Simulated scan of single mutants.
Amino acid sequence: MFYWLLKYVVLGPVLKCLFRPDVRGLDHVPASGPVILACNHLSFSDSIFTPLLVKRRVTFVAKAEYFTGKGIKGWLMRQFFVSTGTIPVDRSGGKAARAALDTQLRVLRSGNIAGIYPEGTRSPDGRLYRGKTGVARLALESGAPVVPVALLNTDEIQPTGKLIPKIKRVKVRFGEPLDFSRYASSLGDRFVERAVTDEIMYELMTLSGREYVDVYAASLKTAIVAPTPTRTPVND
């Protein structure tokens, strides 16, 4: 009930009025049955716009820290994620990735829509990065079609680190559903899972028009924040 009020009465109409969504291909999202929305990830606001634009309920998983914030900001964030069906996942342990996939599999087996960011984290510079094969395992295990979703300018609307978004028209593109049922018997084959993931990322690259980089975004972020080793002077 609270989800319906937030999406259709409170937050949804306000955001549509302010950001005047330019959405194309929304009819590619099936009206019923399990569906995977595979989105590029440019901004925190991706998890706000995508569920509000799709007529059906979209469930993402998010790190548990989003649900434990303090003060008014923490409360508002928690209420938003809870009301939009976002599920908290503890990402600190080694089994966190499997836990996230199991959560999304339950969503799909219930005939609903699961949202996933194949890159695994926000892009550090706006480019599209190598997808992790979790999205392929999700597709092969569930048999659900994958609809690629390209968010074109959310990094301009709410850059990383910015709390207040810019009021600017948001642009989103939905691609045609991708059917990977022909690979159902190859679940667990890492070469097939990589091929499926790469096909999804190619569609995202085409839809978004963003440059593709064949490395993991998380690896680049680690390299950026890692301290530069200092050299000890050597006396000749």
Rank of each mutant, 00 (worst) to 15 (best):
P51M: 03
K70M: 05
D102V: 06
Y66I: 10
L26P: 06
R20K: 08
T206E: 13
T133A: 11
P159W: 12
D46Q: 10
E203G: 05
S181Q: 08
T121H: 06
S185R: 14
S45I: 14
N40I: 04
R130L: 13
E156D: 13
A31I: 07
V10H: 07
I167F: 06
P177V: 07
S142Y: 00
C39H: 09
G69V: 12
R78H: 09
R24S: 15
L108C: 00
L5I: 10
P118E: 09
G12S: 04
Y212F: 11
G74L: 09
S83W: 06
A195F: 09
N112M: 06
E211R: 02
L6N: 12
V14I: 06
V10R: 10
V170Q: 05
G161R: 00
Y117G: 04
G175N: 03
A195S: 00
K16C: 11
S186F: 12
F49V: 06
Q79S: 14
G12I: 07
W75P: 12
A114R: 04
V89C: 03
G74W: 01
R173P: 03
L204P: 12
F60K: 03
V135Q: 05
G143D: 01
P227D: 02
L5P: 05
N153P: 01
I36A: 01
R98S: 12
S208L: 00
K221T: 11
P177R: 08
